[in-house]
């Protein structure tokens, strides 16, 4: 029994908008050109709700909610940006910068990185929390790709793309908390993976310079993601 989606009206940032009942606040906001920052969200992948960048205020709800996983309701009043929300987002972004080693100036994704762009858009000019400077490995064993854990934000996009779209589930996250890390198979080198199809989807969905193509120099790594919603649609119709 498939639920029929209904049209609902709601207010986002004072603007009256409409959407389908199975749409999230984020989707409806996007359709109406209202900007909500995101990081782990990517159209074409399942919703994750991990990065907390898209938190918004909903009138009557006791807590801030992630716009990506909260469905709209009739009469909902959403505030996507207030001083409080903005400050929380800045702090979360700052925490992400402290966690690994994001050296933008020496990164192949410089200029095309979602983390870097978010810092620019939200006006993060410095990070108030102390940097952790963990020693992280770089896996360059694959013929075509590199995994640089220094740049990883653990958004889980690669894991989801590999599992949900490619169907290989070569990548997953190991450990937990601050020590979690993205792995290939049984924490093996990427180059020796028997399950990896080398399709490159993980590389292109990665928001930062954690997964990149070989042979790219600083600022040369641009990602292509247009294929994703298309692929999703085609697979649903299969």
């Amino acid at each position: 029994m498939k639920k029929v989606s209904q049209i609902q009206t709601l207010i986002i940032d004072g603007k009256e908008v409409g959407g389908k009942s199975d749409e999230s606040i984020l989707q409806v906001a996007k359709e109406n050109d209202i900007f909500i920052p995101t990081l782990c969200y990517l159209e074409g992948l399942s919703d994750y709700g991990g990065c907390r960048m898209c938190i918004v205020e909903v009138k009557g709800m006791p807590r801030l909610v992630p716009a990506c996983t909260t469905l709209i309701r009739e009469g909902m009043e959403v505030t996507t940006n207030s001083e409080k929300i903005h400050n929380y987002r800045l702090s979360i972004l700052a925490l992400l910068f402290t966690e690994r080693n994001h050296i933008c100036s020496a990164c192949v994704s410089n200029g095309h990185c979602e983390l870097q762009t978010l810092a620019l858009k939200l006006g993060l000019t410095h990070v108030e929390f102390p940097y952790i400077f963990p020693k992280m490995p770089v896996d360059a064993t694959h013929d075509r790709f590199i995994a640089d854990h220094n740049r990883c934000v653990l958004c889980g996009r690669c894991v989801r793309a590999c599992h949900e779209v490619e169907g290989a589930h070569t990548k997953d996250i190991m450990g937990r908390g601050i020590t979690s890390r993205v792995i290939t198979d049984l924490k093996e080198s990427w180059g020796s993976s028997k399950t990896c199809t080398s399709c490159g989807k993980c590389v292109h969905v990665c928001p930062t310079g954690a997964l990149t193509e070989k042979g790219k120099s600083v600022a040369e790594m641009e990602k292509r993601r247009q294929f994703l919603p298309y692929l999703k649609l085609m697979r649903e119709r299969r």
Binding site: I92, R176, G177, I178
Partner: peptide
């Protein structure tokens, strides 16, 4: 910090910062 699953940023990184 050691029990945080690591999925969401505030808990994963915030706990490490607080511990520090």
């Amino acid at each position: 910090m050691t029990e945080s699953c690591g999925k969401c940023v505030p808990c994963r990184d915030g706990s490490a910062q607080m511990y520090h």
